Simulated assay, not measured.
Amino acid sequence: MHAARFRVAGKVQGVWFRASTREQALKLGLRGYAKNLPDGSVEVLAAGAAAAVDALGQWLRVGPPQARVDSVSRVVAEEAQAGRGFEVL
């Protein structure tokens, strides 16, 4: 198992970014969450197979049609922080 924490900046709040991320994560069999941050970015924690986490990371660079992604950062995360399922916080 592998885990990563992403921070996505741009026009990513109020455009169904978190719900769309959850949909993608569940299709990939990932656990974790997506939540809005006070600075207007979205934090995503994803845990699962390394290839699935990488695939979500690639999807985050584009996001849903209404979004505009300016940047995505990624750091290693603790798998235990992912919990069960994939939540929108």
Results as ranks from 00 to 15, higher is better:
residue 62 V to T: 14
residue 10 G to N: 06
residue 52 A to T: 08
residue 6 F to C: 03
residue 51 A to D: 15
residue 26 L to V: 08
residue 31 R to I: 00
residue 53 V to C: 12
residue 26 L to E: 11
residue 6 F to E: 02
residue 60 L to C: 12
residue 26 L to T: 06
residue 16 W to F: 15
residue 83 G to Y: 08
residue 8 V to P: 07
residue 62 V to C: 10
residue 44 V to D: 08
residue 85 G to W: 03
residue 37 L to M: 12
residue 73 S to D: 13
residue 7 R to A: 08
residue 40 G to D: 05
residue 20 S to R: 03
residue 75 V to A: 14
residue 61 R to S: 13
residue 56 L to G: 03
residue 38 P to H: 03
residue 14 G to K: 04
residue 59 W to R: 08
residue 22 R to K: 14
residue 63 G to H: 13
residue 59 W to E: 04
residue 51 A to E: 15
residue 59 W to T: 09
residue 16 W to I: 02
residue 53 V to S: 11
residue 2 H to R: 15
residue 47 A to H: 12
residue 72 V to P: 07
residue 46 A to G: 07
residue 81 Q to S: 14
residue 52 A to L: 07
residue 27 K to Q: 02
residue 68 R to I: 01
residue 24 Q to G: 00
residue 7 R to N: 11
residue 62 V to W: 10
residue 86 F to C: 04
residue 35 K to M: 09
residue 33 Y to I: 00
residue 46 A to F: 03
residue 4 A to V: 01
residue 20 S to D: 00
residue 76 V to C: 01
residue 86 F to E: 06
residue 34 A to W: 01
residue 12 V to K: 09
residue 30 L to W: 07
residue 72 V to S: 05
residue 51 A to W: 04
residue 64 P to S: 04
residue 43 E to F: 09
residue 3 A to G: 09
residue 52 A to E: 12
residue 67 A to I: 10
residue 73 S to L: 07
residue 88 V to I: 08
residue 7 R to C: 11
residue 45 L to W: 10
residue 17 F to W: 04
residue 16 W to V: 01
residue 67 A to L: 08
residue 42 V to I: 00
residue 30 L to D: 08
residue 55 A to T: 15
residue 74 R to T: 09
residue 55 A to G: 12
residue 6 F to V: 02
residue 85 G to V: 08
residue 34 A to V: 00
residue 83 G to F: 06
residue 41 S to L: 03
residue 27 K to M: 01
residue 65 P to W: 05
residue 21 T to S: 01
residue 4 A to T: 10
residue 60 L to T: 11
residue 48 G to Y: 14
residue 38 P to N: 04
residue 3 A to I: 02
residue 56 L to D: 03
residue 51 A to L: 10
residue 9 A to L: 03
residue 8 V to C: 05
residue 73 S to R: 14
residue 12 V to S: 05
residue 83 G to N: 11
residue 39 D to M: 02
residue 9 A to C: 12
residue 9 A to T: 15
residue 45 L to N: 10
residue 78 E to R: 15
residue 65 P to C: 06
residue 3 A to V: 06
residue 3 A to M: 06
residue 49 A to K: 12
residue 59 W to V: 05
residue 69 V to G: 03
residue 8 V to W: 07
residue 42 V to R: 00
residue 29 G to M: 06
residue 36 N to C: 08
residue 82 A to S: 13
residue 76 V to R: 13
residue 86 F to G: 06
residue 13 Q to E: 04
residue 72 V to R: 04
residue 34 A to L: 00
residue 9 A to K: 13
residue 81 Q to A: 14
residue 44 V to L: 09
residue 84 R to E: 14
residue 51 A to Q: 14
residue 8 V to A: 01
residue 32 G to H: 04
residue 8 V to S: 05
residue 18 R to D: 12
residue 52 A to S: 14
